[in-house]
Design a protein around this nucleic acid. Structure first.
Length: 423
RNA sequence: GGGGGGUUUCCCGAGCGGUCAAAGGGGUCAGACUGUAAAUCUGAUGGCUUAGCCUUCGCAGGUUCGAAUCCUGCACCCCCCA
């Protein structure tokens, strides 16, 4: 059995463990069962979820049994960990849709077939029929309030002026603690992994198991995903969340996200997210051309999330988009390459006669909000049509400026593209 | 309840009767350099039919040839006293 603990350590993926001494040996001694929980706060997972997901995958590949738990029940309450303010409750319908979406995505990352299949569970299944009275007697009885108050997630809220915490969020940890105990009883699960903000919830589960059944469980937390400037990762430069579903974040944008990872963070990302071996990663880190690191990272990540076909598409699009003048391509090719780029449709007649002013074209495409903005961009040399710089604000676009039969490719600055279709 | 201070363009923050679309910083955008980086440098940053015009300085009125600047009322915020 491969030494999973040493691997995690090498990758910098161990933040804390509940038993530094025995955990490595215990893991090395045989197949263990572990779980990680996922909050169904949206219909899709995002880059932030990838860390625990790949974490589970690593364990699975090392021969351990993994459980991915979707929090259909816990999501109804909301985990206060790492949140500075009380959260709004999600409606039941939204939650159900989210659970469905997330379950589907999980299938892409873990192997649910084969010799050592992963297990996918939803805690709503065992919490649904648990009555309040029974729960208080079985579980609540084992939680000293003074201990609960001391947990980071609760204390930081109480200390924060004007924040406070509701009773429901306060008792969230009981639910997660009980999940662990339930999984232990029914699936032999003995280890929980999560982000460092999950420490309080994980130890709550370990305490509960000891009190209820006298068993010893374990926990490992991984570091929070912060970049070198201390900001949470997983957002594009413009602040959009990087989702794992191609509908929400196109393979092209996803690929671009990783290509644009800062030098200071690229090593960490390679270690955290990819399944590449230590030797491979070290070789990449020492490559002559520093861009190899980002390219390789983007390649691995896009292949993992969007498959080989998605990667091909993203790479082709990137090549064209950051290349020279766009010409000699057909509608079909352009539509393929720019599948992810926002587009607007205008009547063909707009290009006739005088033609279409640059101002109209750029505002219609959504690349600029006002004519003044277009004027500025053009005057500063940042406006392009088919990757050719627009010579002046007075320039009129005609059928001559089409990149293919009906498509015109507009660009503002270095990276922002939009398509205009003329029909 | 009494007294004082505040509310400015995306944010912070100057301005205290005309030279104010409003200093400075941050952010953002664009350009150069580069590696589709970082750092740096340059420029831009209310709108428009752009040498000009129009709308902005909490809200509503007023004084004045002219108001972000003065007066009145209202709303919200902060501080001090009770």
């Amino acid at each position: 059995m491969p030494d999973i603990f040493a691997d995690l350590k090498w990758r910098g993926l161990i933040h804390q463990t509940t038993d530094d001494e025995n955990l490595p040996k215990w893991l090395a001694a045989g197949q263990r069962t572990l779980y990680a929980g996922f909050d169904p706060t949206a219909t899709s997972l995002h880059v932030g979820h990838l860390l625990p997901l790949v974490y589970l995958r690593r364990f699975q590949l090392a021969g351990h049994k993994v459980i991915a738990l979707v929090g259909g029940a816990t999501g109804m309450i909301g985990d206060p960990s790492g949140k500075s303010e009380e959260r709004n409750l999600l409606s039941r319908e939204v939650l159900e849709a989210n659970v469905v979406g997330i379950r589907q995505q999980m299938e892409g990352y873990l192997d649910f077939g084969g010799e050592n299949p992963a297990i996918l569970l939803n805690n709503y299944d065992w919490m649904r029929d648990y009555t309040y009275l029974e729960f208080l007697r079985d579980v609540g009885k084992h939680f000293p309030v003074n201990v609960m108050m001391a947990k980071d997630s609760v204390r930081s809220r109480l200390e924060r002026e004007g924040a406070g915490i509701s009773y429901s969020e306060f008792s969230y940890m009981l639910l997660q603690a009980y999940d662990f105990v339930y999984l232990n009883r029914n699936y032999g699960c003995e280890l929980q992994i999560g982000g460092s903000d999950q420490w309080g919830n994980i130890t709550a589960g370990i305490d509960l198991a000891r009190r209820m059944h006298g068993v010893q469980l374990y926990g490992i937390t991984c570091p929070l995903l912060l970049d070198s400037t201390g900001k949470k990762m997983g957002k594009t430069a413009s602040g959009d969340t990087v989702w794992l579903s191609p509908e929400r974040t196109s393979p092209y944008k996803f690929y671009q996200y990783w290509i644009n990872i800062a030098d200071a963070d690229v090593s960490k990302c390679l270690r955290f997210f990819t399944l590449l071996s230590h030797e491979e990663i070290e070789a990449i880190e020492q490559a002559e051309d520093p861009r190899v690191r980002q390219r390789r990272l983007a390649e691995e990540m896009t292949r993992l999330v969007h498959g080989e076909a998605g990667l091909q598409r993203a790479q082709l699009a990137s090549e064209i988009l950051f290349g020279r003048e766009i010409s000699g391509l057909s509608d079909a090719e352009l539509n393929e390459i720019f599948a992810d780029v926002p587009s607007q449709t205008l009547p063909k007649s707009a290009l006739e006669g005088e033609g279409l002013s640059v101002a109209e074209a750029f505002t219609a495409s959504g690349l600029a909000k006002s004519n003044s903005e277009v004027r500025r961009t053009v005057e500063q040399g940042g406006a392009y049509v088919n990757n050719r710089r627009v010579p002046g604000f007075d320039y009129q676009l005609t059928a001559q400026d089409l990149a293919s039969e009906t498509v015109m490719v507009l660009r503002s600055g270095k990276k922002k593209y939009a398509l205009l279709r003329f029909v």
